[in-house]
Amino acid sequence: MNIFRLTGDLSHLAAIIILLLKIWKSRSCAGISGKSQILFAMVFTTRYLDLLTAYISLYNTSMKIIYIGCSYATVYLIYAKFKATYDGNHDTFRVEFLVVPVGGLSFLVNHDFSPLEILWTFSIYLEAVAILPQLFMISKTGEAETITTHYLFFLGLYRALYLINWVWRFYFEGFFDMIAIVAGVVQTILYCDFFYLYVTKVLKGKKLSLPA
């Protein structure tokens, strides 16, 4: 465990908690893509099935349980408790265009053709693109609440920090996982445009709004 990995995990945790608290405190999920949140719930579910088969550490197990728990809680808030505030009209990304190709790819390109490994690979590929419905929604409405941008920033930062972690692990441990690295690079690239807007607008106290 290096500092980049740890801060990456904490950044991921911060993102998840920020989103959950935003919805809970405002009693509203306006501007949040329920589809992205369902995809993230799928990501955590398919990746952390090894909770049932392998024990790594107390840290590992607790974080996995927290991520899964918060993810399902978020989906519950959006689609049940605060359903009336869910902006479904703007959440129109066709998720089958992500899930089907990602499912196919995880069967074709994986480390081992076994159920658990294919599901893990699926989760890695799906996570790389799971934010697209949310970004699509923002591009459609042309704006995002500031708290939503903080969520996106920490979510993007997490994978960027993992990239540095993988460079570190390659040099100091000789460890590398090509699937995770390539997907992680793709995932981070998808946030670049957003990072630019976050730094040039949100951090200067302006609301994130896109030109019409």
């Binding site: 991921h12 090894d50 392998a54 790594i56 590992n60 081992d112 076994s114 490994e117 893990w120 995770a180």
Partner: peptide, 10 residues
């Protein structure tokens, strides 16, 4: 090679 159960990263 790092396969199947026991991924240490989240």
């Amino acid at each position: 090679e790092r396969v199947s159960s026991g991924k240490d990263e989240l």
